[in-house]
Computed example of a mutant assay.
Amino acid sequence: MNCIHCSPIEPIEDKGIVKLRHASPSLASAVQAAGYRLESFQEEICGIAYSTREQLFQLIKLIEAAEEAAQLTISIIGTGAEGPLERWMSLSQLQVRFSNHTLIDIIANKEFCSYLQPIVNPSEQIVGFEFLLRPKPQGAPFQPYTLFEVARQSGFHSFLDRAARISAIESSARLLPPGIKRFINFLPSSIYDPAYCLTHTFEAIEQQGLRPEDFVFEVVETEEIDDISHLTRIFAEYRRHGILVALDDVGAGYSTVEVMSGLKPDYVKIDRGLVSFCDQDAGKQQALKEIIDRAGEFGGKVLAEGIERWEEFRFCQELGIHLAQGYLFGKPASEPPSHFLHTAGIAGIG
């Protein structure tokens, strides 16, 4: 089961057909006058043949100069590659794809893996891990933020977000025993219809023989949360399948205390900016107390991110924070710490 947003990303071939949607007769005439063969033109969809990569680039330049360029959407179909799902994109998305072909190849070929970073309880026992996207060993390097930004700008963010979730689920099956929480990020903007778009996630958990209650899916918001009702439906779909949810970076950007109180996530992850040197900053201390108090009103467990100093950890312990994460306890790595498997499972977090 696939929709076009998550379907495989086909390479742009050196020979094929460019389809334009919302094309005018004048644009079709201009294309013909430039020496290109018009394959079809009906209902504002214009099909134009090209036979070399250079011809394709020149054709795109011609299209970009058209008066209606901003309204056009484009689909490029290689010879013999046309299938039931046709991917349409704007000219700006196509430009991003051409100018970032290395990163697009990494996305299309899923040339990434999942690292995991420990999450500890107040007794410093590892009770969970957050899974983070990283380059494959010996693979092409990339910065995760840049990869997701290119995916967003090119229209491939749903494909990447789903592939990253599946990678984390499969890695957790290989590396972790039952009873250990697995925190996995997701972008709400990549999920158009929760009941449909999350099917592959639930199927992956089932196929790996894993327990839904061991998973926590957390909202990663690099963009404004402008549709709380949509995010509420996503949370409800996760919970309907026995999975817990978390709100990331609370106290920074768009993840405000008000948003947290409205969504009532099972886990509240406090932004590292509030945690850093919180033992020395009265303003941060007040903000932390407010988040903890408000989360307590709906039973949310609070996790402090970005802890790098024992003083920060001890202060968070005194405040009553349930969980902690940061370089103090371990950096993201391809495998759990060597001491973890000896104590795994003795301290669950519910």
Rank of each mutant, 00 (worst) to 15 (best):
I270D: 07
P84N: 01
E318D: 10
S26Q: 15
L198H: 10
A30G: 02
T222F: 00
L103E: 07
L147N: 06
I119L: 13
I292S: 10
V245P: 00
I307Y: 06
L198A: 09
D271T: 09
I107F: 01
L59V: 11
Q71W: 14
A295H: 02
K301Q: 04
E39S: 15
L160Q: 03
R162V: 06
I346R: 11
Q280Y: 14
L341E: 07
A344H: 07
S26K: 13
V245C: 10
P141K: 03
A282C: 10
S255C: 10
F186E: 05
Y145R: 10
G306R: 05
I74C: 14
P337D: 07
I349C: 11
F142S: 02
G320T: 09
P11I: 06
S334R: 13
R233N: 14
L132V: 02
R309I: 07
L103S: 01
G179K: 01
E39Q: 14
E305A: 06
I17F: 11
R314C: 10
F217A: 01
Q117D: 05
L303M: 03
S338C: 06
E258F: 04
S167H: 00
H339E: 03
A236R: 08
L38M: 15
S261Y: 12
V31Y: 00
I77W: 12
C3D: 15
L210H: 00
Q143L: 15
D281H: 12
R97N: 05
I77C: 14
E308W: 03
G83N: 13
V216K: 01
R152W: 13
E308S: 07
I228E: 12
S261K: 13
H157T: 06
D281I: 08
V120L: 03
I126Q: 11
H241R: 05
E224I: 07
A195M: 12
G273N: 13
T256M: 09
H322M: 05
E67N: 15
E39Y: 15
G348P: 02
F41W: 12
S229F: 04
V31G: 08
I17G: 11
I104H: 00
L91Q: 08
L91D: 02
A344T: 01
D105L: 01
I346E: 12
A23C: 15
L20E: 14
Q325V: 03
L38V: 15
A28W: 13
F98G: 03
A65K: 14
Q117V: 09
F131R: 09
W310Y: 01
R152C: 12
Q208A: 10
I191C: 07
L132G: 01
D281F: 06
N185I: 08
N109V: 00
R294I: 05
I12T: 03
Y238S: 05
T146R: 11
I180D: 08
R309N: 09
M260I: 06
Q317D: 00
L187T: 06
P194I: 11
L132M: 07
D193R: 14
R182E: 05
E170I: 10
L274G: 09
V127D: 04
I166G: 04
G16Y: 11
N2E: 15
G326M: 04
A246G: 00
E86P: 08
R182P: 10
I48N: 11
A173D: 00
R314V: 06
V220R: 01
E223R: 15
H157A: 04
I234F: 00
E237Y: 04
Q42M: 09
G330A: 10
K19M: 15
D279P: 14
A49R: 13
